[in-house]
Write a protein that binds this DNA or RNA. Structure first.
Lengths: 204, 204
DNA sequence: GTCTATACCAAGATAGAC
DNA sequence: GTCTATCTTGGTATAGAC
């Protein structure tokens, strides 16, 4: 999945769309780590293997780049959920989507970039995009997934806790602190291994 | 409660501790709105009615100021919870603490400053403080409030969703969007009025 | 205890070459 | 399509006066 872009990264010159996608991927990671304001275009450029002015050139402004990252993240999120709606129907829908959600932590920075946006509601443009995106997810849960308002609330609440635990890097203390273990097991009874494996990779 | 500090604000010169508290209050608000990185010491200074260098002088660095804000927020949070543990015992503990939590949105920026910290787990010093603070709350729920791991998880999940809805300023669309109304009513069946009234005040 | 002035640096964006 | 060089702004922190 990412091997395509990794191969492309080695080219010194490529089609604009490919480079764009490559930068969006890198930007998602970096924004996820440091937040919107905390991220520099230079850092994104470094992560993508291009020059800083080129990043700006391609997306106009840092803000526009962030908006593009958010849009892409939302698309990936919803299409992952839709895929889960297919799947083994002996398994309840809520469970299938829940598992799909935790699996999304694999897409480095995706959920965290969203989380950073969610907390910037005060920004006139980023905030508006964040609200719209959040409601897209809610609408999906209510209509496509068939959740009741209360089920949707429950699901989103669990999701926000997972985002928080990942964002706060609670994984760092998983081994050493038994209370952290207890909490994380309660928050993601399944698929904890995915999150932990990912955290392991990050500590390089 | 805040009238004390408002009166003090009019003095051009005051005891260091009072000015300190005044600045911490202002900083909590501003950090809550714009996040750690997105906040400038100049903006905090303006909000507190002092000069920018004085803010730095008093706390050493912006980072230290943020850490102090976090510590203060945690203290207020836990003492509010402890007060709720007292209260009318015909009302279940979980409910009393839940209501107390929503009431905390009154303390402008308190929950949001915490939320901003929670998402900065990657920062070596802020992240460590955030994790420690989060676990303080978990430990309170488990020991003092007597929650099971699952009850604590449930409570924290609901809390993170409320934080997110407040941070994303979902209140802005409450009147116009029926789906937003539906979601917010599910997320905070009680005390929604407190949050809405607060949001009203913010849009000046 | 608090201010004004300012040094210093980092970051986003632009110009223009290749 | 992509880079190097650079302009410009804004933000933290320091020095030093009152």
């Amino acid at each position: 999945m990412s091997s395509v872009s990794e191969n492309l990264a080695k080219e010194t010159r490529m089609r604009g769309d490919d480079r764009r996608e490559l930068i969006l991927e890198a930007a998602t990671q970096v924004f996820g780590d440091h937040g919107y304001v905390g991220t520099t275009t230079a850092e994104i450029a470094r992560a993508a293997g291009v020059s800083q002015p080129y990043v700006v050139r391609l997306f106009g402004t840092k803000q526009q780049l962030f908006l593009d990252v958010l849009g892409r993240a939302l698309d990936q999120l919803l299409s992952t959920f839709r895929a889960a709606l297919g799947g083994d129907s002996s398994d309840p829908v809520a469970h299938r989507i829940g598992v799909a959600y935790v699996e999304l932590t694999r897409e480095r920075g995706l959920l965290l970039s969203l989380m950073h946006a969610f907390v910037l509601g005060g920004d006139p443009v980023v905030g508006a995009a964040a609200r719209a995106g959040f409601m897209d997810v809610y609408r999906f849960l209510r209509t496509e997934a068939g959740f009741s308002p209360d089920e949707a609330q429950q699901f989103l609440a669990g999701g926000m806790l997972i985002n928080t635990l990942v964002g706060i890097r609670m994984t760092d203390d998983y081994e050493t602190d038994p209370e952290v273990r207890e909490l994380m097991q309660a928050a993601m009874p399944e698929k904890l291994d995915v999150v932990l494996a990912l955290a392991e990779g990050d500590r390089r």
